[in-house]
């Protein structure tokens, strides 16, 4: 484990290319990101502060800040940054590292459960099937929720990358482990 900056460049760099994440170093703390942020207008989330915290290696402070999860990834800061800092992708990379270290809320982990069970973050139920019929569509769309062998491909991806372990997924219960005890990790 290096500094947070080094880890961000290594981890995010694998997906976006290192130079994309290295733009973090170009931040001059002008605050244009915070100024246009719809979350900053309503919550304690401060984009400029987050960038600085990442640069000065305040790993635990960032990972433990609830505001880290109040970015809606709207990309306003990303487009407006006068220094070309790829802010939104840097925030997503910070979140990836935080999640790997166990900083992930139960509702967020549950989204993974729905996908592992149905292939969909928002699965269909009997009531919605009636809605489909009412507009002349087949009651169930031809997706992973309908075809088990297709769903198994998605499950294979989650097993391969370790997403199931990251959210503490119990394959026998098809739910988060310990959910019966109140869902706390």
């Amino acid at each position: 484990m290096g500094t947070l900056y080094e880890d961000l460049v290594d981890y995010g760099g694998e997906v976006f290319g290192k130079e994309h994440i290295e733009t973090l170093r170009d931040c001059v703390q002008c605050g244009k990101c915070t100024g246009g942020c719809p979350s900053g207008r309503n919550t304690a989330f401060r984009t400029r502060k987050l960038m600085q915290m990442a640069l000065v290696d305040l790993r635990e402070e960032i990972f433990n800040a609830p505001e880290l999860w109040f970015c809606s990834t709207c990309y306003t800061c990303y487009e407006r940054c006068p220094k070309g800092v790829k802010v939104t992708d840097i925030i997503r990379t910070i979140r990836n590292l935080a999640a790997k270290e166990g900083h992930m809320s139960v509702p967020h982990r549950m989204i993974g459960v729905y996908v592992l069970k149905t292939g969909h973050a928002v699965p269909i139920g009997p009531d919605q099937m009636k809605l489909r019929e009412a507009v002349g569509l087949d009651s169930q769309p031809p997706t992973t929720q309908k075809y088990k062998e297709q769903l198994e491909q998605v499950q294979t991806i989650f097993r391969t990358t370790g997403y199931d372990a990251m959210i503490d997924f119990d394959w026998d219960e098809m739910n988060l482990s310990g959910m019966k005890k109140g869902g706390k990790k």
């Binding site: 997906v15 979140r95 989204i111 998605v154 991806i157 990358t161």
Partner: peptide, 23 residues
Amino acid sequence: VGASCCPAPGVFGSFDMHTWLPV
């Protein structure tokens, strides 16, 4: 036929982009 969740970019991209991408 057999398509899944895209998966949600701000959600799965936020938790593990190495799972988001292959899905």
